[in-house]
Write a protein that binds this DNA or RNA. Structure first.
Ligand code: FES
Ligand code: FES
Lengths: 166, 166
DNA sequence: ATTATCGTGGATATAATTTATCCACGATAT
DNA sequence: ATATCGTGGATAAATTATATCCACGATAAT
């Protein structure tokens, strides 16, 4: 069971976009360059973040991506589900209805207890992710970062930030 | 993110093996037949359960598989980790160390905060799975099963159960 | 108006992983 | 001896993840 690498990319992108002034943007190219990841593939994930209302996109020159809401209102769960989808990892194939001792449909009114237990565990997972806001993550990230990174990052942001009209 | 179908197979196999008299076994062929799943592939997962000390295997005629310990001492987590592995679903690729603003190794003494948050969520998931014992799952399963299944299953078990010498 | 920049969406290719099958081998009971 | 059973390795097929490319519409600068 492996989660898409795009999740790590997306979280760090949201973290970086959270450091921008209001309404300013970063282009997909800049986001890819900053993280050293392939642009053409990152765009796919950014699009998912736009579709799910986490990012806004601005077309045209001086356009790019920016947050659609504050970091305190974006959780890790939002990003994970946007990039990796909302389908559960455990997918019951109704194995109980197969084989020589199975009965016809109708004999299984309730969801299989195994499935329910797995769902409970995944819900605990989602609850934990929903507890983690991007504001908390970002604050903690900056507090623990090497002090040399701060001016480096600020300088890079100055050169790459765009401010569209709308 | 999708979990191996083998997990569902393995859980239901353990549930069935829990209904056997002590030291009795079911062959891999019988387990596959009962669940209507491919035998050759199921054997791979059963082997993992043996390796991880959840099942015991008995070779030779009248041989097969049986539980290595009581169902109350087997949790969903044991089975999930045996079949699907213990590696975390989220695998940090240290994206923070790439790109133009990254510093050399040594500037990152602590694990990335994003990674730590994801690990916390996965730990909550594992904790929930560790709470669910196969005894509880099985009891609940039998209590909610269609009454017609009980004699059917008992009959099938009688015909397919083996009792090896050791 | 013209041009350059940027995100969107679809098509496509490559790599990695999952799923599935097969066979030779050793162990064991009849 | 012989038939049954699990083990392990090799291998193939199917599915998913990763990555690239290009035509298109929108926008801003000139
Ligand atoms: S039938 Fe799918 S988990 Fe039990
Ligand atoms: S660098 Fe991997 S999660 Fe932050």
């Amino acid at each position: 069971m492996k989660m898409s690498d795009g999740v790590e990319w997306a979280i760090h992108c949201v973290m970086l976009l959270g450091a921008l002034p209001p309404s300013a943007t970063l282009s997909g190219k800049a986001l890819a360059e900053f993280h050293g990841i392939p642009e053409s593939y990152l765009l796919k994930h950014l699009k998912m973040l736009v579709t799910n209302g986490i990012l806004e996109s601005v077309p045209g020159p001086r356009g790019g991506y920016r947050l659609a809401r504050q970091t305190k209102d974006i959780t890790l769960l939002d990003i994970v589900q946007a990039v990796d989808g909302k389908r559960p990892a455990f997918r019951c194939t109704e194995i109980r209805r197969r084989g020589p001792c199975a009965l016809g449909d109708g004999a299984y009114p309730r969801c299989c207890g195994v499935n329910r237990a797995m769902m409970r565990a995944e819900q605990a997972y989602r609850d934990a992710l929903a507890e983690a806001t991007m504001k908390d993550i970002t604050d903690e990230f900056m507090a623990n970062a090497d002090p040399r990174i701060v001016p480096l990052g600020e300088n890079w942001l100055e050169e790459n930030t765009r401010t569209p009209k709308s």
